[in-house]
Design a protein around this nucleic acid. Structure first.
Lengths: 235, 235
DNA sequence: ATCTTTCTAGCACGACCGTGCGATATCGGG
DNA sequence: CCCGATATCGCACGGTCGTGCTAGAAAGAT
């Protein structure tokens, strides 16, 4: 009986408009009116899909999150050498092209907003686990270690052990053996932590000072990170 | 004749209030009224020191910038072993205590705003040069290289050479000596770049997911970065 | 063709923003 | 003591925001 539209398609369209606006004017400029105009709709139409601005931002953040796993799956399914797989996984987290750069800008802006908007806290935490998980995958791939448990599994296993066990344990067990000058081979979790820091750092750098970072420079920098993981492991 | 107050002291007081507000409510919450209330003043009084909100934010950013050099100077003047000096310099850029964490939050928020507010572009660029310079100092200290030219000198020498000369030159001269598996010792500028990325990454991490980063974890992570620089140089 | 449900449009309201401005208070030199 | 420059106050204006709401358009089932 009624007029029927594809809500999901509309929401995706809205998200695209939102990103264009955020990329142009920042999150502060992402008002309901501006997004509606950008999409070519009225405010009333937009409110049929998002009852409030909070829902819109939450949706944008969830969408950014959901776009990552499929891209990863492609690299995990492909038949690749370890180094190449590690490279591709890591580069998924680096804003190497214009599309990803815009996404990264939006992402950073949403992270900033999540500091004061509790409704964005959940995707922020999920993102942290997801990013860290990918970094663990990269390390495991490079060092030929067993694949780490996925974030979902960890969450389900929450009752049987705390999340930081792996990191905490290894930071105490190191301290004696010196492999290099002052060098001690870091644990896999410490390597994942370092990659995680690298990824966030290059994201901030490339979005804030794009003139200093060409895609080629980012790739080269990532490559050196992979080299370092191998070198620190003594390989 | 007139009533006289110390403008600089007032401005500093204002900046402190601004940081408290930003730390609590984000930059979006840093309205003229909120800052005035936080400082215990009226809106009109505030406008005697900052004619507009833009001036207030610009001042806040400049203040954050100006606070860094004195702290650095102390470490540069002190009689320290290279490793210790490098450590202290690097840790100046890491939010290891609560005060620095708040400053980092404010800083990130201002960076975000600088994306759409041209008046904040200049301090942003100065900050990049300054951070990079400190990273170069750390590398030079660690690897016993001559101290790099300061950002100001570089700026003054602009006519006689481009800024990226050191990076471009050394990235071409590398390529032969392999120290590790796929390892090629990165150039000093590449090491500085890596440290720079690390610093920004840990800043973003520690401010966005403070639960995951204790000060001790940050120090340990920084230590491993220093180890890596030495190890990559083959020492 | 008509009815029912969904969708769209845009006005209206209250809240809050930055800022201009005039009244008032405060101090220091004459 | 008192004048005048400076500092402080807070109201008021115009603008923009998010959101509630109602009138009307659109479209499939009957």
């Amino acid at each position: 009986m009624p007029k029927i539209v594809d809500h999901d398609a509309r929401r995706a369209e809205l998200a695209a408009a939102l990103w264009r606006v955020v990329g142009r004017a920042g999150v502060a400029g992402a008002t309901v009116r501006a997004v509606a105009d950008e999409a070519g709709w009225s405010m009333g139409a937009l409110r049929h899909y998002f009852a409030s601005q909070g829902e819109l931002l939450r949706f944008a953040m969830d969408t950014l999150l959901q776009d990552v796993p499929p891209r990863l799956a492609a690299h995990l399914a492909a038949d690749l050498e370890p180094r190449e797989r590690a490279r591709r996984l890591l580069l998924e987290l680096v804003p190497v092209d214009e599309e990803r750069r815009i996404e990264a800008i939006v992402w950073l802006a949403l992270l900033e907003r999540s500091r004061t908007d509790p409704s964005l806290a959940e995707p922020r935490e999920i993102a942290w686990l997801g990013e860290r998980h990918i970094c663990r995958l990269v390390v495991a791939e490079l060092l030929d270690l067993p694949a780490p448990a996925s974030p979902q599994d960890r969450f389900e296993d929450e009752s049987s052990g705390e999340r930081g066990a792996q990191a905490a344990g290894s930071s105490t067990e190191r301290g004696a053996r010196a492999t290099g000058p002052a060098g001690i081979a870091p644990s896999p979790e410490e390597e994942a932590e370092a990659l995680h820091t690298f990824v966030d750092g290059i994201t901030l750098q490339a979005t804030t000072w794009p003139g200093e970072w060409t895609p080629a420079a980012m790739r080269a920098s990532a490559e050196r990170q992979l080299d370092s993981v191998l070198q620190r492991a003594g390989r």
